[in-house]
Computed example of a mutant assay.
Amino acid sequence: MEFVLEEGKRLHEECSTLILPALSIGNVGQLAVDLLVSSTGAERVGYLDDPNVLPCVGNDAYGPVPQGELALPLEAYDSSSNALTLLQQRSPVVKGKMVELAKNLADFAAASGKKHIVLLSGLDFGKWQKVDMSSGLQIYYLSSTNSDGTDDYCKHLGWKRLQDFNPDQKCWKYLTDLAEGTAVREDDLSLEDELEDEDYYPSLPFASLFSFFKARGLKVTCLLCYCSEGDNLPDAYHLAEATCELLSLSPSNFLGSGGGKWLVPFSWKTLYGPPPDLSIF
């Protein structure tokens, strides 16, 4: 992985917190990062070139007037006023290369002086059988603070630790061994094996990222919400608001907030295409 700085830009040392999405159902993590980048007025300082992410290119996602700036697969944004670096991922990971990408991103974070990593991701609502949704949208978390994934501050915020997390479970243990460089025996689990229900969470991208960031000695907090494919904008707002709660940020102080309101990214105007032709009704 190579980090390329924009001309005339630099990484701000005070930006010790890194926020990034872990790709999953509904792209909720990516949408939440879009919302945070747009609302904080973060500036793009560079991009990451990694062979484990599929190439893509598109128009500027945030500017209403074309400036000739292209959106790339892995972009880094700094919001120095909020001490944040936000990493946006716009294309999928090459099949079977999630572990390699997680290792590279963890190396980048450690080398650039990051102290706290916040991972944002959606979870399949099809697993809701074990989830109490009576109170509406909920945030679940997983933290590196304690070995069992708990964190007193997250608990204070009213969030629940990701259910069924067990660091000794075979898939979680396998990821930990890979991240820590422990030799894996030939008869140990491979992530390419057929997975059971208990293997769902550790099979997701956030689990690989969590394991590798943690192995680098970084504090890691995963913020997760259950969703389905479709219009996931409410979930993105919910996840972005939870991020602000975690980091004690106030959206009313964001550069682009406009009096406490989130600044909707320009690219969202065409997120789900044009409205239907009303003449068909």
Rank of each mutant, 00 (worst) to 15 (best):
S257N: 10
K219I: 10
F206V: 02
E229M: 15
H238W: 05
D231A: 15
S252W: 05
S211K: 01
G256H: 11
D197R: 07
L247T: 05
C225L: 15
S208H: 11
C244K: 00
E198L: 13
E229H: 14
G256M: 14
S252P: 01
D231G: 14
S228E: 11
D197K: 08
A242T: 02
D187Y: 12
S257I: 09
L249S: 02
S211C: 11
F254C: 04
S208K: 07
L223N: 02
G256I: 05
A207R: 03
Y226W: 14
L209A: 09
G256Y: 10
G230T: 08
F206P: 01
F212V: 06
F213S: 02
P251Q: 07
S257M: 08
F210M: 04
L195R: 07
F212S: 03
L249R: 02
F212H: 15
D193A: 14
F213N: 04
Y237H: 07
D235W: 03
L191M: 15
S257F: 11
D231V: 13
D231I: 15
H238F: 13
P251D: 03
A242Q: 00
N232A: 08
F212R: 09
C227I: 05
L195Y: 07
D197V: 13
L247I: 06
G258A: 13
D188Y: 06
N232S: 09
D235H: 15
E186W: 09
